[in-house]
Design a binder for these strands. Structure first.
Lengths: 227, 227
DNA sequence: AAAATAGTGTCTGTTAGACATTATAAC
DNA sequence: GTTATAATGTCTAACAGACACTATTTT
């Protein structure tokens, strides 16, 4: 098999990116609160169906697939995403009815406040997904698993919270991701020793009771290498 | 930008797979013993240069990129690989002189005995790589990092050993991957409680001294989901 | 017996979970 | 004061690292 025939075959492959944009709703008490941002497709295939934001890679425009993913999100959400990480690449002859396709899938994290601008009916609970186009339910499952796994040993979940947050909110978030309630004392000990947050001096969040100290993520904690 | 122009642009993208086939040489005392299987390219670009085994995805033949990676390895090594895992996808306009390219990269693990059939001069130490084609040095770096990270909490490294092995060999391997000598007693305690190996009853490995019990990996320990 | 490696036992400092206590606000 | 949540302190059981010890082979 020579290169010419390889190239001939190759040209049939569809190359896209898809992004699982995750956020968490700390209000909802049922389920873990994880939600994913969907779009409603305006073209075939799967016209009118719900799907992850995604699209073709544009070689003239995109410097790599991560840039393509950022461009797609910028188009759909109107702003740059705070955190983007490559998840995995899905491929095969039947996942896209147009033909043999490769989709490089990314996970993005955004806090609930920022996601307010996303249409509420397109923010689906990840544990109760509606029917989705392509194999996007599978991608979301992989994205959720990735973020859950990382919650156990990294500071990454802070991207799911606003710029400032209380330790109780952070604990609630980790508890939801890990699927188990955490002990307050142990959690704070851990957070202190890992040292990825710092007090916002003098800033408190008040409620019906004792106000809580606000914290922010320390500048450039190394969360992960992004490719 | 309509779909037609998208498709037109899209057809320029080169889709390949590359495989970092890793093994470990427990004899070598200098370095960690990790080695990667290379090939010498027989066609442009980078003709005559050293590179990872890889090639175009064949839509007619391959059911997905993992199948393409297995096919490439089968062609180069003549046998099916024991362990294959998707690593990451690398992309961009300049990593391949032929044009905008996407390479889905895989990590494969094989034991040293099996790798004896690989030409010795094409088994490079990962900590002293020769000049390589494309961005393959980067891919190898990512592959090594992945395997090192997994060594800390999984049974995956057993694929770097022959079917049967002694606990001392297993400890040596983990120590090399983790970059630190491990305590014999603690290591055995851990291996016992994780329970991913079992004795091969009556089988011992003799040397200049007390023979060591041989073990094998238990059938279908779950190492990881492969996509 | 000496040498070398396999394999086990024990001690101890650290840590994570459980839970009690104190602190500070609203009402 | 009561109530609610923030924040800290203390106790304990489990565990990991260090290291000593025993076991079994070759020479």
């Amino acid at each position: 098999m020579n290169m010419k025939s390889d190239l001939a075959m190759h040209s049939k492959i569809i190359v896209t990116v898809d992004v699982a944009l995750l956020t968490v709703d700390l209000e909802s008490s049922l389920s873990n609160g994880l939600r994913v941002g969907l779009i409603r497709r305006d073209a075939a295939p799967y016209k009118e169906a719900l799907a992850l934001p995604g699209g073709y890679v544009h070689p003239e425009e995109d410097d790599n697939t991560a840039a393509a993913a950022r461009r797609v999100l910028k188009t759909k959400a109107g702003k740059d995403v705070r955190y983007l990480e490559q998840l995995a690449t899905f491929s095969g002859p039947s996942r896209d009815p147009r033909g043999w396709s490769v989709s490089v899938c990314y996970v993005a994290l955004e806090d609930r406040e920022t996601m307010k601008q996303w249409p509420a009916d397109l923010l689906a609970r990840v544990d109760a997904l509606p029917p989705l186009a392509f194999d996007h339910a599978t991608l979301i499952g992989a994205a959720v698993e990735r973020i859950r796994n990382k919650a156990a040993y990294s500071a990454l979940p802070v991207f799911l919270l606003p710029d400032t947050f209380t330790l109780s909110e952070l604990q609630d978030l980790y508890g939801r991701l890990l699927g188990t309630p955490l002990d307050k004392s142990s959690f704070r000990r851990k957070v202190r020793e890992l040292g990825f947050v710092e007090e916002v001096s003098g800033a408190f969040k008040g409620g019906q009771n004792r106000p809580a100290q606000l914290y922010r993520a320390k500048e450039m904690t190394i969360f992960d290498r992004t490719i």
